[in-house]
Computed example of a mutant assay.
Amino acid sequence: MSVTALGSLARTTGVGVASGLGVAPADRARVLPVHDELAGLFPWGGLRRGSTVAVRGSVSLLLAVLAEATAAGSWAAVVGIPCLGVQAAAEYGVAVDRLALVPRPGSQAGLVIAALLDGVDLVAVPAAELSQAHARRLSARARHRGSVLLPYGEWPAADLELTCLDVTWSGLGDGAGHLRQREITVQAQGRGAAARPTRTNLLLPGPGGTVRPAYPRVRSLLEPRQPRAAG
């Protein structure tokens, strides 16, 4: 997609009707929703506008982060991640009629991302394709425009980083059957209010294909364990 093409998006039925286009960031909800099972990982209870939230190790986790906000009416764009498809996004609950895919932006990826940050609520980008200096400029642009930047991979000075750790699939029997669900551990840590690391165990996908809790609650890594009762 060229920069010229992006300039015409506002006149199409795609990204051009994204929620909040032409609306000052202060007039929109400051926190976009996420699944209840993910909310405990965010110090703001959801995706705070103007923030950069990096997702590492799982495209499924990235889709799960996008799902609730798009279902609630926000628009999202995914740039430069060709392995992410519409069908997979729909299975994880993303409202695909409010999802713009730019799988191969070419040499102008930075300009494409910057243009999308001006008018789309959430923009997911490939961290490995951008220099640290360019990454910092994009985070600053998201902060100024009130969008949420979602890098896939390591990102300098992200406000919050969600990292997929242990992965366990289940569903196969003794040499037969189908993989039905995957249990993952997600660690969240960042800056400021997000400095204290937290972890939660999720089924992603769980029954029905979307995110489900594997354990009842998120526990801070610094939270003291309760002693067991004797006997």
Score class of each variant (00 low, 15 high):
Tyr152Leu: 15
Trp155Phe: 06
Glu154Arg: 12
Asp174Trp: 12
Ala195Arg: 13
Arg145Tyr: 01
Leu149Arg: 07
Glu183Pro: 02
Asp159Gly: 08
Ala127Phe: 06
Leu203Ser: 00
Ala188Gln: 04
Pro207Thr: 01
Gly153Val: 03
Ala193Tyr: 10
Leu138Val: 06
Pro197Phe: 00
Tyr152Gly: 13
Leu150Lys: 10
Leu179Tyr: 13
Val148Met: 06
Pro197Lys: 01
Gly171Met: 02
Gly171His: 08
Arg191Gln: 13
Asp174Cys: 05
Gly146Val: 05
Gly206Tyr: 02
Ala133Asn: 12
Val186Glu: 03
Arg136Trp: 04
Thr210Ser: 01
Leu162Asn: 05
Gln181Asn: 03
Ser131Arg: 09
Ala135Arg: 05
Arg196Met: 11
Ala128Pro: 08
Val211Cys: 01
Ala176Trp: 15
Cys164Val: 14
Ala176Gln: 14
Ala135Thr: 05
Leu138Asp: 05
Arg199Met: 10
Glu154Asn: 07
Leu162Gln: 02
Ser170Pro: 07
Arg145Lys: 14
Asp166Ser: 15
Arg191Trp: 06
Arg145Glu: 10
Val186Cys: 04
Asp166Gly: 12
Pro197Arg: 02
Val186His: 04
Ala157Leu: 15
Gly171Ala: 05
Trp169Val: 12
Ser139Leu: 06
Ile184Val: 15
Ala214Gln: 02
Ala133Gly: 15
Gln181Trp: 05
His134Arg: 13
Leu204Pro: 01
Ala195Trp: 03
Leu179Cys: 13
Ala127Met: 10
Arg136Met: 11
Pro197Gly: 01
Thr168His: 10
Gly146Ile: 04
Ala135Asn: 05
Leu203Val: 00
Leu202Trp: 02
Arg196Asn: 12
Thr168Phe: 09
Pro156Leu: 08
Thr210Gly: 00
Asp159Lys: 03
Leu165Pro: 03
Ala195Ile: 06
Trp169Thr: 11
Gly192Leu: 07
Asp166Trp: 14
Asp166Ala: 15
Gln189Met: 09
Ala140Pro: 04
Ala133Trp: 10
Leu179His: 14
Ala140Tyr: 03
Asp174Phe: 09
Leu179Ala: 15
Ala188Leu: 08
Pro197Cys: 00
Arg141Val: 09
Ala158Phe: 07
Ala195Leu: 13
His144Lys: 09
Ala176Met: 13
Arg196His: 09
Ala142Trp: 03
Arg182Lys: 02
Arg191Glu: 11
Ala133Thr: 13
Leu203Glu: 00
Gly209Met: 00
Pro213Lys: 02
Ala133Ile: 11
Pro156Tyr: 12
Thr168Asn: 06
Ala127Trp: 04
Arg136Ala: 10
Thr200Pro: 08
Gly146Ala: 04
Leu179Lys: 12
Glu154Asp: 14
Arg145Met: 11
Val211Lys: 02
His144Glu: 13
Leu202Gly: 02
Gln189Cys: 12
Glu161Asp: 08
